[in-house]
């Protein structure tokens, strides 16, 4: 491990000296809310349709982080996949090297090549619980918990959104305008309103649809809803 760190740091310094290219570190920070109240796992919230919910798990993948600079240049910020987990605050901060950005693009989900080329490592390791073993493919985003309206064992609802093949490709592109009111913008705050999961575009009632475990129309609707959860904020 120490050898690797030494190697990488040495390599990075060398690369920077040769190419002379250095950008500021930009922090991309995800914050979660439920219709503007701060979001916490296991706390009770009321959806827009009036159903009560407590969330136990909320995770999603993002990939293809791309920025558009204030000068209009498109810049790939990272080739990595990231697993954003409400339960793990360290996963909610992504650091990239970038000049001042005007737009941030990313994909919610895992690109199709990673869905079809065997076992991956790191955050894409199937042991992370975001992989369907019986119908190969990643769960792009999952929201699981309990709701007194869910007519299931233990009132549990599990919305696992996945599927990468047409007509049920559940990956979604996100395009966010970054507020430019500050000089030397080194942080991008992304607000994720989880209430929209159930109501952003299609009203989804837990009374009727507590379970999503397959690439399906329901998964597509939940994915469309989740897209509307994302906004940027200025603080």
């Amino acid at each position: 491990m120490i050898r690797k760190i030494l190697f990488i740091s040495c390599f990075m310094i060398f690369k920077n000296m040769v190419t002379g290219q250095t950008y500021n570190t930009t922090a991309i920070i995800f914050n979660f809310n439920f219709n503007q109240s701060p979001f916490q796992l296991k706390k009770e919230y009321i959806t827009d349709a009036g159903e009560s919910i407590q969330v136990y798990k909320m995770k999603f993948y993002i990939s293809g982080l791309t920025g558009v600079t204030v000068r209009g240049d498109t810049l790939a910020l990272s080739k990595e996949h990231f697993l954003i987990d409400v339960a793990d605050s360290s996963s909610q901060l992504i650091k990239v090297q970038a000049p001042q950005l005007q737009y941030l693009f990313f994909t919610i989900g895992v690109d199709s090549l990673k869905n079809t080329s065997g076992i991956q490592n790191g955050v894409l390791d199937p042991s992370r619980g975001m992989f369907w073993t019986w119908n190969s493919g990643y769960i792009m985003a999952k929201l699981e918990g309990v709701s007194s309206q869910a007519n299931t064992a233990g009132n549990r609802f599990t919305h696992d959104v996945g599927g990468f093949r047409s007509p049920f490709n559940s990956t979604r592109k996100i395009r966010l305008l970054i507020p430019q009111n500050k000089i030397n913008n080194t942080s991008v705050y992304i607000e994720v309103n989880l209430a929209k999961w159930f109501s952003g575009k299609y009203p989804i009632l837990l009374k009727e649809q507590p379970i999503c475990h397959t690439p399906s129309l329901l998964a597509m609707q939940l994915a469309d809803n989740f897209v509307t959860s994302f906004t940027t904020s200025e603080n």
Binding site: N115, T116, S117, G118, I119, D125, P126, S127, F131, T133, W134, N135, S136, G137
Partner: peptide
């Protein structure tokens, strides 16, 4: 349902009515 040989073992390994184990 399984699109790569390397992935195949995960299904019987984790199925509750086969090996019932976690990775």
């Amino acid at each position: 349902g399984i699109n790569h040989l390397d992935l195949q073992f995960l299904a019987p390994l984790t199925a509750h009515n086969e090996m019932g184990e976690t990775i």
